[in-house]
Computed example of a mutant assay.
Amino acid sequence: MLDLGGIDVEEIATALADQTDYEHRWLIDPRTGQVAFWTSDTGIGGENPVELDELDLIPIDPLPPYVWFQDMADFADGISDSAVGRRLTQSLQGRGAFRRFKNQVYEHHPELISPWHALRDVRAQRRAVEWLLDQGLIHHDAAQQFASEHPDPDLP
């Protein structure tokens, strides 16, 4: 088992959110907790191309988009200004919801950028810790303690 304090939880959260493509992968060394970035062209570290199946590392597959979508919906529902909440909820309808939500927050409600980042980031970190637990890399008690120390922030 790994010590959660020695793992870069934010980096794992980034990997779980990375929806870009399959030409690269995020991996974790189950012995050390070190996260590595692999690309099909340059392997790990940009030096030696290597096939994924030759590595003794665990792939960090991204979570499905609906997981991250729910954070936006919860944020829109949780803010106290109901008119702004309705506009954010409307931005989530149909294709392009992630872009529209981001545009609505950044262009029309910059005062919400910090609260949005706080909610998004703490949830992503809790998901990273849950992922580590699911992989059997950390103890259940460490995951529970992390979750209790990282609640959702209060929304404006």
Rank of each mutant, 00 (worst) to 15 (best):
8 D>H: 13
99 R>L: 06
36 A>H: 15
137 L>E: 09
75 F>G: 03
91 S>K: 00
61 D>V: 09
28 I>N: 04
28 I>C: 06
151 P>I: 14
110 P>L: 13
137 L>R: 07
63 L>R: 12
51 E>T: 06
149 E>I: 12
152 D>L: 08
44 I>E: 05
146 F>A: 12
132 L>G: 10
13 A>F: 03
112 L>S: 03
123 R>W: 00
2 L>D: 04
150 H>I: 08
61 D>A: 14
89 T>N: 04
49 P>M: 03
95 R>N: 03
64 P>C: 00
76 A>N: 03
100 R>I: 02
116 W>A: 03
57 L>M: 13
102 K>L: 06
25 R>K: 08
87 R>G: 05
2 L>F: 05
140 H>P: 13
130 E>K: 08
74 D>N: 14
3 D>Q: 07
60 I>H: 04
98 F>K: 00
134 D>T: 07
31 R>C: 10
15 A>L: 08
139 H>W: 13
127 R>V: 02
54 E>G: 04
143 A>L: 12
143 A>S: 15
113 I>G: 01
117 H>R: 13
39 T>Q: 09
59 P>Y: 06
112 L>R: 01
23 E>I: 04
16 L>E: 11
32 T>W: 05
110 P>Q: 13
120 R>Y: 13
97 A>H: 07
148 S>Q: 14
5 G>S: 10
32 T>K: 05
141 D>A: 15
154 D>R: 11
82 S>E: 07
96 G>R: 00
123 R>S: 03
124 A>N: 01
38 W>F: 09
147 A>I: 14
66 Y>G: 04
19 Q>Y: 00
104 Q>R: 11
14 T>I: 11
44 I>N: 02
61 D>Q: 15
151 P>H: 11
29 D>Y: 04
42 T>A: 11
20 T>L: 08
28 I>Q: 04
27 L>Y: 01
90 Q>W: 01
128 A>E: 03
135 Q>I: 06
123 R>G: 01
96 G>N: 01
49 P>A: 10
9 V>F: 07
97 A>R: 04
31 R>M: 11
107 E>C: 12
134 D>Y: 11
46 G>Q: 10
71 D>Q: 12
58 I>S: 07
17 A>T: 01
23 E>A: 06
109 H>I: 07
129 V>C: 05
26 W>S: 03
12 I>T: 14
38 W>T: 11
147 A>H: 15
119 L>K: 02
51 E>G: 12
79 I>C: 07
50 V>L: 02
57 L>Y: 11
105 V>Y: 02
41 D>R: 15
143 A>P: 15
46 G>L: 07
93 Q>F: 05
36 A>N: 10
85 G>R: 00
106 Y>L: 15
78 G>D: 02
64 P>D: 05
125 Q>D: 13
26 W>Q: 00
72 M>L: 05
46 G>V: 08
33 G>N: 08
46 G>D: 09
131 W>V: 03
47 E>T: 10
18 D>Y: 00
122 V>G: 03
79 I>M: 09
151 P>V: 14
12 I>N: 07
19 Q>E: 09
126 R>K: 12
40 S>D: 15
64 P>W: 01
79 I>R: 02
129 V>T: 10
76 A>P: 08
106 Y>D: 15
39 T>E: 12
115 P>T: 11
87 R>L: 12
95 R>L: 01
148 S>V: 14
61 D>H: 13
138 I>K: 09
117 H>A: 11
